[in-house]
Design a protein around this nucleic acid. Structure first.
Lengths: 184, 184
DNA sequence: ACCTGAACACCGTTCAAGT
DNA sequence: ACCTGAACACCGTTCAAGT
């Protein structure tokens, strides 16, 4: 009866897309109401399945949150890499900073989930990998022009400045334009 | 029968200390398990009252969280002011930065609650006031030595740097000593 | 004033069962 | 494999009632 539904719309999750549907639903909940609004039962409801079906794809609510954070780190990494490709060394660092700030501004809730401490990296290997790959992309650009003494400290300072600005933007304490003006 | 208990220990909350007991209990829960571990029912249990008694002092769970964040901002402000009093202008800014980082390191969970976006400043007047008073204390020191063009941007940069370092410390991505080394 | 117990609509998670 | 319904122990919040 629904053997044909693979190709058609509403019931696609019956054939392997439930994971994706749940992540999409959870992302909507996150953006609308923050971490505390993300519940397995509501995500299941939005995906049109029973409250129990999510456990076929996520071991726990935290695993679903970890998947959202993982996707966030991948998207941020992609944005950083694209910004890096579009600029040459003197301005490259600024371009990455701008991409970082735009990410935080465009998806505040995901940014907060990524850095809010609700999901522990250590408990979710995919998340740990995505997060360190993102920092690797950032670090390689931040250190590319320096090697003398103090380089490591300068790199950390640059990272902290951008990260702090991003948090202030995500918290709506300053706006994105003022933050970008600080990138020099 | 318990008319005398005002002066004595366990049942003091029956006479006006319940609010304080609940905050203390909530603080323990926050430090032990993060925001999501703070529940009204568990705080009530720790304080030795029925699950319903907290509503005499807090309109909602969020109001209890707001009280914790408010106390956090007051403690941070006090730490910043003391640091400022103990140092003179050239080093004063660094001293404040150090105090900020030590606060984030010593009470990561509270720092995250204060800046994690779970409680909205706008919904809690006391919190809004405590938070802006804290930023005022910071801002006055950050701008005291400069007035020429670019001063506002430099002040924001200094704030963002310290704030970013503090988040990285709270997230355990760098340790407090490395962060302090970045304050110059 | 401050506290209690029962009640309601939610959660996350587990289990036995259906296709 | 993937999904369902019932069940359990939790929540936040409200209400009627006790002292």
């Amino acid at each position: 009866m629904w053997a044909l539904s693979t190709s058609g719309g509403d019931t696609a999750y019956h054939h392997g897309d439930l994971r994706r549907s749940l992540i999409a639903a959870a992302r909507d909940l996150l953006r609308a109401g923050g971490v505390e609004a993300v519940t397995l039962r509501e995500a299941a409801r939005l995906a049109g399945v029973s409250h129990n079906a999510p456990y076929r794809h996520f071991a726990s609510r935290e695993a679903l949150l970890a998947a959202l954070a993982t996707e966030g780190f991948r998207a941020l990494r992609k944005a950083l890499e694209e910004a890096g490709r579009r600029a040459e060394p003197p301005e490259r660092l600024t371009a990455l900073g701008r991409a970082y700030l735009r990410f935080a501004d465009a998806d505040r809730a995901t940014f907060r989930l990524m850095f809010g401490g609700v999901v522990e990296d250590a408990d979710h290997p995919d998340l740990a990998e995505a997060s360190s790959a993102t920092f690797g992309a950032l670090r390689s650009v931040v250190t590319e022009r320096e090697s003398p003494a103090g380089a490591e400290r300068d790199a950390l300072r640059a990272w902290a400045l951008v990260h702090g600005l991003a948090h202030l933007v995500a918290d709506r304490q300053i706006d994105a334009a003022r933050a970008e003006a600080c990138l020099k």
